[in-house]
Design a protein around this nucleic acid. Structure first.
Length: 153
DNA sequence: GCCAACGTTGGC
DNA sequence: GCCAACGTTGGC
């Protein structure tokens, strides 16, 4: 089992939005970055654990826990002409973009960036590096354990 | 709103 | 294959 951090803008989809969905699950559409796509397509498996991160908002930070609900499959929006996420170079025979489904586990307190930066144990997290923009990043199991510990304190 | 950092595009 | 230009991300 692997561990991940996945960013979402709460104005698009917050942890509360995820919890309120009919089956508390969503297709993680719209990833248009190859590295992030590769993580989903090649490495994510059902049951992988996810930190749900709120980005581009007043209080960026970890807002909840989720899990990968299924293996990656082609992102449907790449085939929808006129859609923001349409990709003319993709076809059903040769899909370019993939997504997994992500399922709500629980909401947590907001664990913000300033607090994350306090801990040397977390210093290598991609999210804390200057200029980091990747929306999906792998987590070391030790980082996962440490953060879950912080969330319980 | 600013701007640093990064990924992608496209001309050569 | 290089690299300048451009668009986007995301914290502040």
């Amino acid at each position: 089992m692997r561990y991940w951090l996945m960013k979402s803008e709460p104005s698009e989809l917050s942890i509360d939005d995820l919890a309120a969905l009919p089956d508390q699950s969503i297709d993680w559409y719209g990833v248009r970055n190859y590295q992030a796509r590769n993580f989903m397509r090649d490495q994510m498996r059902p049951g992988d654990q996810v930190l749900f991160y709120h980005s581009s908002c007043a209080e960026p930070g970890i807002a909840g826990l989720a899990e990968v609900a299924c293996a990656a499959y082609p992102d449907r929006l790449q085939f929808e002409p006129g859609h923001k996420y349409f990709d003319a170079k993709a076809s059903p025979e040769k899909p370019r973009w993939f997504n997994v489904d992500v399922k709500f586990v629980r909401k947590t307190r907001l664990l913000g960036l300033p607090e994350l930066r306090l801990h040397p144990e977390l210093a290598n997290m991609r999210i804390l590096q200057k200029g980091n923009r990747l929306s999906i990043t792998p987590l070391d199991p030790k980082e996962w354990e440490f953060i879950v510990g912080l969330l319980q304190s």
